[in-house]
């Protein structure tokens, strides 16, 4: 009796082992086959967002791999090190991409991506993620409304601190009646990001990029396994 029980258990265990090994083989081979394509897709996707706000003729480097580690800063609204990107044209820095956070949205933080030209002009702004009320505060998404394009070409020189507010508060930026908290938060965050750029201009434009292509390649893979 005991012997048959042991035998049955062994049989089951071997059976399970067999399928586990088989599954592992199938999975590892798929993983190996798709790994490179996945890393590439992740990178293209990132680049797609950046390419929306950095004009194509203003850079010739691989922006995604030219990263800057930016320490937490009140002007960026960041509490951890954030990543910036630098676009260069013929070796000359042309645009810097920052990832500021607006802490005071209607329902929590709004994550932004802001591209600033070397002369301090905003090249473009996009919202990466937010939790604003659907149908009310979500017109900051470019897919829903061109509102966010108002920032294109604005800078500290052509807009005074007073101008960097929504019209309702006496500034130059439009907002929709009934939903002003969200645009206020975004305008404030972009304004601060421009100030951050002005303050750290030299470092952002000239500091040697710390990351090598090899490292960012591995990062792409890491991203996927998350």
């Amino acid at each position: 009796m005991r012997r048959t029980l042991a035998k049955a258990s062994l049989h089951s265990a071997l059976n399970l082992l067999f399928f586990a090994v088989l599954g592992t083989i199938v999975l590892s081979s798929t993983y190996l086959l798709t790994r490179d394509t996945i890393a590439q897709s992740v990178e293209t996707e990132k680049l797609k967002l950046i390419a929306q706000i950095v004009p194509q003729d203003s850079y010739d480097n691989n922006i995604v791999q030219s990263t800057l580690d930016l320490p937490p800063d009140e002007l960026l609204g960041t509490e951890e090190t954030s990543i910036g990107y630098r676009a260069t044209l013929k070796g000359e820095p042309s645009v810097v991409v920052l990832q500021p956070v607006a802490p005071d949205g209607y329902s929590g933080k709004i994550f932004l991506i802001v591209a600033i030209r070397s002369n301090g002009e905003v090249s473009g702004v996009r919202v990466v993620s937010h939790h604003e009320t659907p149908g009310l505060g979500d017109y900051i998404e470019v897919a829903k409304n061109p509102w966010i394009k108002q920032f294109d070409g604005q800078s500290l020189t052509n807009h005074t601190a007073q101008d960097w507010q929504v019209k309702k508060d006496g500034g130059k930026f439009d907002s929709m009646a009934g939903a002003t908290i969200t645009p206020r938060a975004v305008v404030k965050a972009v304004h601060k990001a421009v100030q951050y750029f002005a303050k750290h201009r030299d470092q952002l434009l000239t500091q040697a990029p710390p990351s090598s292509p090899d490292k960012s390649g591995r990062e792409g893979v890491k991203e996927k396994t998350k």
Binding site: T133, P134, G135, L136, M176, A177, G178, A179
Partner: peptide, 9 residues
């Protein structure tokens, strides 16, 4: 829920 914007006027 559907039309929050119009519901604020």
């Amino acid at each position: 829920i559907s039309f929050p914007l119009q519901m604020t006027h």
